[in-house]
């Protein structure tokens, strides 16, 4: 008997023991199928008021920076100003679907390719964002490599405001609606990477970005 059979056998025996006490049996199988089909939600804290306002407030609490524009073409200028103010390098990479933005005109060297460890800035979009916590949700794929939001020291995320949902549950619902199954990795990003391992002192920029800039900009 292999380890799999042995472990599952022990689990089965244990369950028979406890089911004998609780009187559970066939209904369980039914409720399993039901539970998977209905995937009921647990209690959710209500997000009161405007989703965008909530999202922005939560972003700031996570130490993310937030900028807003009604003109998507203005995004590179906002990025350039942000980097210059902080005296940061202006070279980086972006997701392919953002390559058409006027980066060069804003004085930035942003290339459309996956990131390597030398790139200073990584520009991504987001599948959606969560107002409850100020979180960005990204899905991996050909056009959306996850390393772009991870390897560079500055992560810029461009967010379409209509893609802000209230909760993580709402975000899962969007994934279910738009895809059959989750991609290789779904990342929830809540501010810059950090550690408090040394003397419980929160320090930004552990292994991922030192800063996250969210730019809220409608597509049209």
């Amino acid at each position: 008997m292999n380890a799999r059979e042995k472990i599952l056998g022990k689990i089965r025996d244990a369950q028979l023991r406890s089911n004998a006490n609780n009187g559970a049996s066939v209904e369980n199988t039914l409720s399993i199928a039901q539970h998977l089909a209905q995937h009921p939600r647990g209690p959710q804290p209500p997000v009161i008021g405007d989703l965008l306002k909530n999202f922005k407030e939560r972003c700031l609490k996570l130490s993310s920076d937030v900028l807003e524009t009604t003109n998507r073409g203005d995004v590179p200028n906002l990025v350039a100003r942000y980097l210059n103010e902080k005296n940061l390098p202006t070279q980086g990479v972006c997701w392919p679907l953002l390559s058409a933005l006027p980066w060069r005109e804003a004085g930035l060297d942003i290339q459309s390719r996956p990131s390597n460890s030398q790139d200073a800035v990584g520009v991504t979009g987001a599948f959606c964002a969560i107002a409850e916590t100020g979180t960005l949700m990204t899905l991996s794929g050909k056009e959306t490599p996850p390393s772009t939001s991870l390897l560079p020291e500055t992560h810029v995320a461009i967010l379409e405001p209509s893609r802000i949902v209230a909760s993580m549950e709402d975000a899962w619902e969007l994934v279910r609606k738009e895809f059959k199954q989750p991609p290789r990795v779904v990342n929830f990003i809540s501010g810059p990477s950090r550690t408090a391992d040394i003397e419980m002192t929160v320090t930004m920029g552990a292994h991922g970005p030192y800063r996250v800039l969210v730019i809220i900009a409608p597509l049209t």
Binding site: P114, G141, K142, P182, R184, N187, R194
Partner: peptide, 16 residues
Amino acid sequence: NYISLLTGTKSSEDHD
């Protein structure tokens, strides 16, 4: 900061 849901292996189209 990061919650990652990992499902399966890299597809032929994935860069990483």
